[in-house]
Computed example of a mutant assay.
Amino acid sequence: MPVAVRQRARLPAWLLALVFTTFALATDDYVIAGVLPAVSAGLGVSEAAGGQLVTVFSLAFALGAPVASVVCATWPRRRLLTWALVLFAAANGAAAFTTSYAVLMGLRVLAALAAAAIVPTAYAVATALAPDSGRGRYLALVMGGLTGSLMLGVPIGTWVGGAFGWRATFGLGGLLGLVALVAIRRTLPEPPPADAMPVRERLASLARPRVVLGLLGIVAIVLGSMMLMTYLAPFLRDLAGAGPAALGWVFALAGLAGLVGGQLGGRAADRWGADRALIAGIAGFTGVMGVFTACWLLRPLPLPALLPLLLVWAGVSWWVPPPAQTRLLALAGPAGPQALALNSSAVYVGVSGGGAVGGLVLESHGSGWLPAVAAVVELVALALFWAAGRSR
């Protein structure tokens, strides 16, 4: 292989450090679901109360990300990542020793606020340091840390909790934060200084119709995808008679397919342009939803026969976010880093909306309608991005 090709293919160490950082944060967020019964029993609260540890993390992240992005807009990125990771690791380390539910709730808020400062900054740094022809691919890789946490981090964290107790799971979160901190400090150069746009002008840029429409498009993309993801268990039970054991393998393989799909979506955004890659991803998603709807008419079907379709669905679901983020950056202009923070909040809104809207569809019409409604929502997302592009 020629030297130039090898250099082009080699990923910079700082990018791998950012990927590991998002992996660590997402693992800490999602892993509580795996140790929830043990946490609830250890603190003497109900599982419903224990589940609020997940809710408060998500809420603090969603509210904290845009605020942190505006307040910290001119801070040196490397320093911001350093101190936010210190706070994240300290909050998890303290959580491993607390015996109070209220204290643990407060520590989860601190960890979430640290994550709210880190994740958008990681996206902004990847964008600032990426070559012009690799912006979508670099964003997809950093986002891949989130997917990787579902495939690797959460199972490991759950196993650690089962083997050594739930406190060890929080200790693992703190350890991952420290490893990310060392990796960032050793590899990340200081990115170019952020645009010194006044806060008022920065907020005005984010309030422009094209940015608002783009963010609504992100909400719709995630909402449509999460409608089926959230209720995949009842859908596959009704379609193929799949039980919990089979669903475990489905989720693992879907996570792998999603990781591949995200990388392909990022590459497509670089090679084809964000608009064409976005259209291709949403067209693929809509087509898969149409096939699922047709399969519903032929039920019951054997699960192995549906597996290729499930993998394609997972791949195109994760294909879409990288070009959508790249398009949002273009719409936001100089306020791109703050738009990425609002993008993180929009993702959480979409996740919540997917569960709510999908639940309404499930109760009123049954699981067979989920793919069709999800396809309509994704087409609405495409229309919102089209309107954003035409807005002045």
Rank of each mutant, 00 (worst) to 15 (best):
I184H: 04
W159P: 05
A246S: 15
A114R: 04
L232D: 07
D270V: 10
G358W: 01
A196W: 03
R210K: 15
P308H: 01
L129H: 03
A387Q: 13
L328T: 09
C295P: 07
V45P: 01
A233P: 01
Y101T: 03
L382T: 00
V347C: 09
S133N: 13
I218L: 15
V142T: 13
V373T: 08
G358A: 04
R8V: 00
A245F: 06
T55D: 01
V71L: 07
A257E: 05
V70G: 02
I218E: 09
A246L: 14
H365F: 15
A254L: 12
L301F: 04
L264N: 10
G224F: 07
I282V: 15
G153D: 12
G161P: 04
R202V: 01
R8A: 15
W296P: 12
I32G: 05
L360K: 06
R237I: 01
A242L: 08
E190D: 14
A168R: 03
V125T: 15
G389K: 02
A180Q: 03
P234S: 09
P192K: 07
V45G: 02
P12M: 11
P308D: 03
G165E: 10
I282Q: 08
A274N: 12
G359F: 00
G315A: 15
A388S: 02
F20I: 12
W386E: 09
G354F: 06
T187N: 14
S205W: 12
G265K: 10
F285C: 04
F292C: 05
V67C: 05
G243C: 11
A102C: 00
L311Q: 09
P2G: 07
L141E: 05
G34P: 11
L232Y: 04
L36T: 07
I118K: 05
L301N: 02
A324N: 02
L256G: 15
V142C: 12
S133I: 00
L150F: 13
S100L: 03
V349H: 03
R135M: 08
A268D: 11
L85R: 01
A65P: 04
